[in-house]
Write a protein that binds this DNA or RNA. Structure first.
Ligand SMILES: [Mn+2]
Ligand SMILES: [Mn+2]
Length: 315
DNA sequence: GCGGTTA
DNA sequence: TAACCGCAACGCTAT
DNA sequence: ATAGCG
């Protein structure tokens, strides 16, 4: 009927309901989504290859409820890469998909995966993250300007520590600030360091930032969210499409982009991202070459008197 | 989107 | 035969 | 114990 096949990496992938409109406001179809991921794959893959993925799927379009899916079902093709993952809550292992080639991205899009969310680590060392992330969203009622400022403040802090930092629009409300790591420590350690950095910045500007987990205690201040630095946690993949009107794309930025007063979380979309990439290459293309060891990060924090509180070092 | 379960 | 359903989960805090 | 939060 409306099923069409595409050829990717020498594989034939069936795309059911090729003409199904997934973004009603924009007229974007599943075919458009499939073509997007096929075209973005060369730029996107270096950032997501080997990462386990949580699928955010919308078979009936974004006007209907979607769902998340982590466990790889038996009906996914044999060639889709799977890794056995221990799930604490279930006290068992289960197969999950990790991203590998353009074909994996295209197959997931054909399954109406609008947004892949990825781990901070990669197969085979899934307990050792190669990313440290801060998630910055505007507090209730605040403008994006607050987020932009926070990202620049956080960058300044990291710069003082000689730690590389990269920024990305999330395509929804805020920004991610990302530090590339050499995957030489487990999540418990990286989360403690992220927390120490966040608490340091919140102490420096207590009227603007907070690390309080209790909502009520935040009182209009931006929450420096370090909590995603944990096993099994996912964040929106670089160059993923978001299930929102306009089909915004989570877009890696350079710091010049962040300095622009007109920057915002949904600045780039499926319809505009390739124009941007033609104008300037992927700002993150060197991110892995700049990875720092967690040991050096720890030492840099100590030199500056930024230490994990005793509570964080207990096991 | 699809497999499994229920009416 | 078709309608309906499920499909994620970590670490922490508050209750 | 369970529920809520990001
Ligand atoms: Mn489960
Ligand atoms: Mn966010």
């Amino acid at each position: 009927m409306t099923t069409r096949s595409v050829e990717v990496d020498g594989r034939t992938i069936e795309v059911p309901r090729w003409d199904k409109v997934l973004f009603p406001d924009d007229g974007l179809t599943k075919g458009d989504l499939v073509c997007y991921y096929q075209r973005i794959a060369p730029t996107m893959l270096p950032h997501v290859r080997g990462r386990l993925v949580s699928l955010q799927r919308f078979p009936n379009g974004i006007a209907e409820a979607g769902f998340f899916q982590k466990e790889a079902p038996d009906y996914f093709p044999d060639w889709m890469p799977r890794w056995s993952v221990y799930v604490h809550e279930d006290e068992r292992h289960q197969p999950q998909v990790y991203l590998d080639t353009a074909a994996t991205l295209v197959y997931l899009a054909a399954q109406a995966t609008i947004t892949p969310h990825v781990w901070l680590s990669r197969v085979p060392h899934i307990t050792r993250p190669d990313r440290l992330i801060f998630d910055l969203d505007p507090p209730e009622g605040a403008s994006f300007e607050v987020v932009r400022r926070a990202a620049l403040d956080l960058r300044a802090t990291l710069q003082q520590l000689d730690v590389p930092a990269f920024a990305m629009t999330t395509g929804s409300r805020g920004l991610h600030v990302v530090v590339p790591l050499q995957a030489d420590a487990v999540f418990e350690e990286t989360r403690a360091l992220a927390r120490a950095i966040a608490e340091h910045l919140a102490r420096q500007f207590p009227e603007r930032y907070t690390t309080a987990l209790r909502r009520e205690e935040r009182r209009g201040r931006l929450f420096l969210d370090y909590l995603r630095n944990a096993y099994g946690q996912t964040t929106v993949a670089p160059y993923a499409v978001r299930a929102r009107p306009g089909a915004p794309v989570a877009t890696p930025l350079d710091w010049r982009d962040v300095q622009r007063p007109d920057m915002h979380a949904q600045r780039f979309t499926v319809r505009t991202i390739f124009r941007r990439l033609a104008q300037k290459p992927d700002p993150w293309r060197e991110i892995d070459r700049r990875a720092v060891s967690v040991r050096s990060l720890h030492n840099a924090l100590q030199r500056h008197g930024i230490n994990p509180s005793p509570e964080d070092e207990r096991r």
